[in-house]
């Protein structure tokens, strides 16, 4: 029964991946994370409904199947976020695009302006409700303060002194 629970989880994850790629390519969602979470929520509900209706998996096997499906999704989201937002990834892609495979310092700055990257992150935090904008000034919202407190605690716990 455990093997079947894993097969179900992998099959549904592959279905999610296919639908996700298709919807992102066709729909180009403005809020990528929200779109991905919603699609996952719909598929998880359908997945559990399907398993319960069929009656093949019960108890621990059912829970395990849901946890494995969720973990595959989390891994997948982490990878796509790195591909989308990592500075190192973007830098390496600029080299892959460059015809001579070499870039001068100024050329790299022109192709990938880190100042603009910071602007995008600030705008994204305003859109997602972590920062509020008043007359060109930015401050923390309640949600932003909660997240900042959690990560300040994690930094202390992991003794991270040089960050950024």
């Amino acid at each position: 029964m455990l093997l079947r629970s894993l097969q179900w989880a992998v099959a549904w994850f592959l279905l999610y991946m296919g639908l996700h790629i298709l919807s992102v390519r066709l729909g180009r969602p403005r809020l990528y994370f929200v779109h991905s979470v919603r699609l996952f929520g719909v598929l998880l509900a359908a997945f559990l409904g399907c398993l319960v209706a069929r009656g093949g998996l019960r108890g621990f096997a059912l829970l395990n199947s849901a946890v494995v499906f969720g973990s595959l999704w989390a891994f997948y989201m982490e990878v796509t976020f790195i591909v989308m937002r990592s500075v190192s990834v973007r830098t390496m892609v600029e080299f892959a695009r460059a015809p001579t495979r070499a870039l001068a310092e100024q050329e790299l700055d022109r192709l990938y302006d880190t100042e603009l990257m910071f602007d995008r992150r600030i705008d994204s935090m305003v859109t997602n409700g972590y920062l509020r904008q008043v007359d060109g000034h930015f401050g923390l919202t309640g949600r932003g303060a909660v997240v900042a407190n959690i990560f300040r605690l994690i930094r202390r716990l992991l003794n991270i002194q040089t960050y950024g």
Binding site: F118, R121, S124, L131, G144, A148, I160, G164
Partner: peptide, 15 residues
């Protein structure tokens, strides 16, 4: 995220 997250670093800076 705690070590390298840009957005999180900006949030903790403000805090």
């Amino acid at each position: 995220l705690a070590d390298r997250g840009f957005s999180l670093t900006m949030l903790t800076d403000l805090l």
